[in-house]
Lab assay of single mutants.
Amino acid sequence: MLDDRARMEAAKKEKVEQILAEFQLQEEDLKKVMRRMQKEMDRGLRLETHEEASVKMLPTYVRSTPEGSEVGDFLSLDLGGTNFRVMLVKVGEGEEGQWSVKTKHQMYSIPEDAMTGTAEMLFDYISECISDFLDKHQMKHKKLPLGFTFSFPVRHEDIDKGILLNWTKGFKASGAEGNNVVGLLRDAIKRRGDFEMDVVAMVNDTVATMISCYYEDHQCEVGMIVGTGCNACYMEEMQNVELVEGDEGRMCVNTEWGAFGDSGELDEFLLEYDRLVDESSANPGQQLYEKLIGGKYMGELVRLVLLRLVDENLLFHGEASEQLRTRGAFETRFVSQVESDTGDRKQIYNILSTLGLRPSTTDCDIVRRACESVSTRAAHMCSAGLAGVINRMRESRSEDVMRITVGVDGSVYKLHPSFKERFHASVRRLTPSCEITFIESEEGSGRGAALVSAVACKKACMLGQ
């Protein structure tokens, strides 16, 4: 009897593995994704193909990295998701002549009506938060230079001027797309009239992360975010950046690689679950690469896999709870928690219980395998993109072996128990001629924006502006 049951459990697990095998990517698959990513990057950089390229390769006008001589107080704003952060950054000489960066910050959550109302409502709310922060720190009387981390696709015309191309991540505030974001912020500050600010720089969160990590390690020339969304930036040779005049030196390019796949480059790798996630998203047909990796989508992918296993009578005796059938019910943090389970399955059992399920031991094991399959594919897909960037940098610099540091931020990278190990191992397999160091950014977005502002202020002083 026991043997029969054991055989049935083994057969069930084997069927589960057959279904989950769809998520496995072979090294040849990853090399294919990497080569296609490089081709799209090239198209994004070139003037004649930029418009139709899915990977936009947006110039950021960040050319210099901090040298350690900029000092002063800077205000930093960070808008990239449902939370908005205001930070005071003091850049100065530390002990023994070292450079020191001290920060104080406060988080504000953005109400739904500000995210989806008008641009005026959104930026009025942001300036209200700045006003509140300055009151708390008794700094209303000071006109501070301000660095703005704005983590949406922007076409820069200068370091302090950028046109919002399109909202992502659930934002829909009308009247912002096609307009200068810094102008919208300046107008809102003017409307309030109770404080003055000098907006000197606007950067993407990947750029802010790279600059913040450069402060720790001067070989950091790539910034990457794996959180709600997924994106990367890197220092490109100016001669390859056709959208900006000049051939000397390097400029940081914001790849906006989340949109890779929007022209069909990933079609052969998309599964039924991916198509369902895409169809029910706020932007169907867009940001397809990001939807395979980002935390906004990972939990939902797992939920759809679990429903398939229920329908195949391989999980929960073929019956799903009402909660499990509800879109968004299986949160991405559950994926991390399930994979963090120590082996007694308590954590998995508790999560499934909150979803109205009474799982068996085998159910718990199957749910864990589903989570591992989805998150491992995410790590491997992400590795193909980064390997594409790094191999490109090595080739354009004609280096036999390139040493490089990548600064990384984002909740999936930082909080998932195995993502970074799987990701690092896969990147290294795909970049055999590179020695890569990964560092995690601390308060990256805010500190990085302030350091970019410090560079901009120093330049302005040198130019006598």
Rank of each mutant, 00 (worst) to 15 (best):
G175K: 03
E372T: 08
M107G: 14
I404Q: 09
M210S: 02
Q106M: 10
I436K: 04
L58F: 14
E443H: 03
G162F: 02
R325G: 14
D3E: 08
V182K: 06
L463F: 12
A21W: 08
D135K: 07
L271I: 10
L357K: 06
I404T: 10
E339C: 05
R428C: 10
R368G: 08
G407R: 07
D262T: 10
Q465V: 14
H156P: 04
V277Q: 09
M107N: 07
K12P: 13
R447G: 07
L292A: 14
G448C: 08
L25F: 14
K291Q: 02
S109Y: 12
S340K: 08
D29E: 12
K102T: 11
V335T: 08
A114S: 12
E435L: 11
E279G: 14
I189S: 01
E93D: 11
G407C: 08
V62P: 00
T342A: 06
H416A: 13
Q347H: 12
T103C: 07
E442R: 14
A370N: 00
L134T: 05
T103L: 04
M238T: 15
R63N: 15
N231E: 03
E128M: 14
N240V: 13
A114C: 09
E221N: 04
E27I: 04
K346H: 08
I225D: 02
P153V: 01
Q18S: 07
T65H: 15
I390E: 00
I163F: 06
S109C: 11
G227Y: 00
E421Q: 12
S373F: 10
N166S: 10
L355W: 06
F84Y: 06
L165C: 05
H218W: 13
P145D: 11
H416M: 14
C252N: 07
S212C: 06
N313F: 13
T354P: 14
E435A: 09
R43F: 13
A176T: 05
Q138C: 02
L47K: 14
L357M: 04
V310D: 06
S340W: 11
Q106K: 06
F269E: 10
I211L: 04
S433Q: 08
I366H: 09
V427C: 08
G175A: 00
S321A: 13
G246Q: 10
L309D: 01
I390Y: 00
T362V: 12
G223H: 00
C434I: 08
L144G: 04
I19L: 14
R43I: 08
Q24V: 12
E27L: 10
H416W: 05
L75S: 09
Y234M: 15
E196M: 05
G229K: 06
G178W: 05
L184Q: 02
E331Q: 07
G80A: 03
N83S: 07
N180Q: 02
E221R: 10
V71K: 15
S411E: 01
G92F: 08
E157A: 04
G318E: 13
V374R: 00
L88H: 15
A379L: 03
R358D: 08
C213Y: 08
N83V: 09
T326G: 13
E442W: 14
F152P: 01
D29I: 06
R345D: 15
T361E: 12
H141Q: 11
G446P: 04
C364G: 08
E442S: 13
L292R: 08
K458A: 09
R394P: 04
G356M: 10
R327G: 14
K15H: 14
V86K: 00
G94Q: 08
A188T: 06
D113V: 11
E216D: 14
D78V: 03
R155C: 04
I351Y: 11
I159H: 00
W167R: 02
D132L: 09
K142H: 08
L45C: 05
V241Q: 01
A119N: 01
L315P: 01
A378C: 06
S109E: 06
I159A: 02
K459G: 15
L30A: 03
D4P: 11
A208K: 00
D73K: 09
D262V: 07
A114Q: 07
G295T: 07
S54G: 08
A53M: 00
K102C: 05
P111F: 05
Q219F: 15
D160Q: 02
E279A: 14
R422W: 12
Y215C: 15
K15Q: 03
A173N: 02
T228L: 00
A10M: 10
M381Q: 05
F74L: 08
S441V: 07
V203T: 01
Y297D: 14
C233Y: 11
E440T: 09
L355K: 05
S263K: 10
S426Q: 08
C382E: 00
V412F: 10
E372S: 13
H416K: 06
R358G: 09
F133C: 01
I351R: 07
N231S: 06
L77Q: 01
Q347N: 11
Y215R: 15
G388Y: 03
V207Y: 05
K13Y: 11
V452M: 14
D158W: 01
R327S: 10
R428H: 10
T209S: 15
M115V: 07
F171V: 00
F330D: 05
G246I: 15
M57R: 02
M298S: 11
T168H: 02
P153D: 03
F269R: 07
L288W: 11
R250K: 15
D247R: 05
V226H: 06
S280M: 02
M251A: 00
T437L: 14
S69F: 12
C220F: 03
L463W: 12
G385P: 04
P359Y: 11
V389A: 06
D262S: 12
I163P: 02
E421M: 13
E120T: 09
F152D: 02
E177M: 04
D194K: 00
R327T: 15
E339S: 06
E372H: 13
A454R: 03
W167E: 03
V335Q: 08
I159G: 04
E435I: 09
V406D: 06
Y61I: 02
F260A: 07
G94I: 13
H424S: 10
Y108G: 04
N350W: 06
D4L: 13
G299D: 03
E51H: 15
I439D: 10
E120I: 09
E268N: 14
Y61A: 01
N350A: 14
F423M: 12
Q38S: 11
H156K: 00
M197D: 00
E300K: 03
G328Q: 15
M202G: 02
T118Y: 02
D29C: 14
L463H: 13
S418H: 15
T168G: 02
A454F: 09
R63P: 12
N254V: 07
G80V: 02
Q219T: 10
Q106G: 04
M393Q: 10
D341G: 09
V203L: 03
S396A: 10
R5G: 12
C213T: 11
T49L: 11
F171P: 00
G147Q: 05
M238Y: 01
L243H: 11
R192Q: 00
F150C: 02
E28S: 10
R358N: 08
V335D: 09
S127I: 07
